[in-house]
Write a protein that binds this DNA or RNA. Structure first.
Lengths: 194, 194
DNA sequence: TCAAATACATAACAACTGTTGTGTTATTTA
DNA sequence: TAAATAACACAACAGTTGTTATGTATTTGA
């Protein structure tokens, strides 16, 4: 087990503690305890807590981004958009933990311009990915012509964000099928009538 | 200046510190300093920090809820729905601070079932309000028949949440007019074609 | 007017925080 | 095999946290 693997274990431990107890209770000692080790491990792999937090944030983000990219290559037409968005939704219990952590990070970033900038950057990547898919499907005649693609990309992300935020607050708010139906209905407005 | 007025001042000080520096830096001492007083003031009006946080949360929520109710009584038909949702959007700079605080609270509530339950309750109030408006407008023939009203109410809230979350991360993400256009387009799908 | 309650200020408390330094094993490298 | 580096454990650090107790003016009430 190499350096990066062990480092990833630390990140995952931090992720678990955050999902379970919240980010402000994710102390160095709490992470070490979750690992079954001492704080020496944590400080060995990360200069300071900010670096650890950013690494954990990146892991949560990178996971879904990669999955969405894979989705974009496997599916065609309307299904490509649909599956990409479904992937980001908290359809099952496990996905909700990712959103818990994500929201904890975002709330923690309020008032910390450095962390907010990190969020902004990741969101930019997401926006570019969605916009790229939209443009491609527009070229194929699947997506309506005459749309403001960047705005539509942001709108799709906002849709998923809003649903997920509601789920974190109240998991019973939307059933899996209701989540999917909302996404489908939004997509109906973007796709060519043909 | 009575007890409740002074208490409200403490809450507003806490609100300002949270919007500026984040919830975890909103300590008793920071609030007191914002007030230009000592921590004795804070402890005098609130048993503990949780009670203060919940009070501040309630103030943020109550403000928009009351404004939305007033909106519901002033406007008719489609405009009623539109204006209520516009009210909750972070259209101007000031509204964004409310959303900052709201997101900071939500992130802080992750892993704290007691605070999450408070969020759930407030959201329930919002849902009921929106559902009530939808039912009324449905009776007037403005809103389509055959809709699942509770789900549609949640969807409207999710729409506003998603947009607002994006704005907090990147204020330049949506212009005021783009925010309004997204809400209008969503409403188009709910209203009778007539 | 005199006691009591209110509205604070101040200080101390123990608990917890991130960080740093030092010590101790393993593991690798030469 | 000897030296060096990595991978930890552990302890101490100064700072911050919420909470509580105690003190002191100020206002209120009878």
């Amino acid at each position: 087990m190499g350096f990066d693997d062990r480092r990833a274990e630390v990140i995952q431990a931090a992720w678990r503690v955050t999902a379970r107890e919240g980010l402000d209770r994710t102390s160095m000692r709490a992470i070490a305890q979750e690992l079954g080790s001492s704080t020496g491990v944590v400080t060995h792999y990360f200069r300071n807590k900010d670096e650890l937090i950013l690494a954990a944030l990146e892991q949560v983000f990178e996971g879904t981004i990669e999955a969405m990219k894979a989705c974009a290559e496997t599916f065609q037409g309307r299904e490509r958009l649909e599956q990409m968005l479904f992937l980001a939704l908290p359809l099952e219990g496990g996905d909700r933990d990712d959103w818990k952590v994500w929201l904890a990070f975002l709330g923690y970033s309020v008032g910390r311009e450095r962390l907010l900038e990190a969020h902004r950057q990741r969101y930019g990547i997401l926006q570019d990915l969605m916009a790229q898919v939209l443009v491609e499907l527009q070229g194929a005649g699947v997506v309506k012509a005459g749309l403001e693609i960047p705005v539509e990309a942001n709108a799709l992300i906002a849709l998923v964000d809003g649903i997920s935020m509601g789920i974190v607050i109240n998991p019973a708010q939307f059933s899996q099928e209701q989540q999917r139906a909302l996404v489908r209905r939004h997509l109906d407005g973007l796709l060519s009538d043909a």
